[in-house]
Design a protein around this nucleic acid. Structure first.
Lengths: 178, 178
DNA sequence: ACATCATTGTGATAACCTGCACATAGTAAG
DNA sequence: CTTACTATGTGCAGGTTATCACAATGATGT
């Protein structure tokens, strides 16, 4: 597969593909291109997605449920090993093979099950507190659906997903289109 | 409110805030700062979010449900005026005040209800087809949850949301952290 | 063995973005 | 009215990112 082909796939240019890859090493053969399977594996290793990750889900609401049942997570190596919620009526009930835990036992469960990533699917007003507790408990990264900017130490990466902003980005582009 | 304060809020620098705003006009008063409410309204107009937008949801699965019930959408002016699904057992049933429509009547309903934005919460294999039909029916923008790059004319903006990639971005950063 | 061809990896170049620093202008007080 | 003060808007400089263009290199065929 040539950088040209890869570029078409990724909506970019051939030069961009080659430059980007060159920052991490030399993956292609001159005159031939890249061997797709080999490149794929190299990149998987490079990105740290050549193994499975233990994930905890905080918030057993509708968004939490959608994420928990999202097949792509498991198939890409993200294993949900714990679910938390603050609602007493949900605690103890089970989704699939996971029983929903109370936030009171958060640290305990996180450590016991070696959770590395936490998905926050809870309202904005409790997100900061849970995030801080997660960091304290040794979590390595946070995927945040709450519409606030979390304050965490720089060594713990946070990825924010804000669906309203995505819609607003569309609105903006449409408005600009004159 | 000074650019300094705004910068702290948005995790950036005062100079950046001023430069960015200056691209769209002059909103502040020298020696005083910005008047928050006024600035807010100016930006809302600029971004095209000073009005409500009519949205159709395609895919009445768990992700679709989570989005449909997401209160922030309605409160920010995004009105879901139609829901579509291909599953015959869902068609005709209702979520809240919306009855789920068949994809057969897609174009008809889109035009009749003046839908401007479409949210695609369906599997990758049918996303391109629905996207093309949406563009053809006159939709102005697409929020795409399917993990494929949609092929649509450049005047129709597409925002992609890929939750697996968000998790992978975390994995990468953690791996790099050495 | 040699020539031809295709495509990489990369130095040079251009475009873009961020941050600094200050002239400018509006406010307030004497 | 004049002076002192504050915070904007912006030209400039530095750094980062994208694009170009080509020498280097391996494959293929004669």
């Amino acid at each position: 597969m040539s950088s040209e082909e890869l570029a078409a796939w990724g909506q970019t240019t051939a030069a961009q593909v080659r430059k980007d890859l060159s920052h991490f090493g030399s993956f292609g053969k001159r005159g031939l291109g890249y061997q797709a399977g080999e490149l794929r594996e190299s990149l998987r290793t490079l990105l740290g997605i050549d193994r499975s990750w233990k994930v905890a889900l905080v918030g057993a609401g509708r968004i939490g449920l959608a994420l928990y049942e999202y097949p792509a997570f498991r198939s890409r190596g993200y294993d949900c090993v714990a679910i938390f919620d603050s609602d007493p009526s949900k605690i103890g009930t089970a989704w699939g093979d996971q029983s929903i835990c109370a936030l009171e036992v958060f640290e305990e469960v996180i450590k016991e099950r070696d959770v590395e990533l936490v998905i926050l699917a809870i309202p904005a007003d409790s997100a900061q507190e849970v995030a801080s507790r997660a960091v304290e408990a040794g979590v390595n990264g946070i995927l945040n659906f709450a519409p606030i900017r979390l304050n965490v130490p720089p060594e713990v990466p946070v990825e924010d997903v804000n669906l309203v902003i995505e819609l607003e980005a569309l609105s903006f582009q449409i408005t600009q289109r004159t």
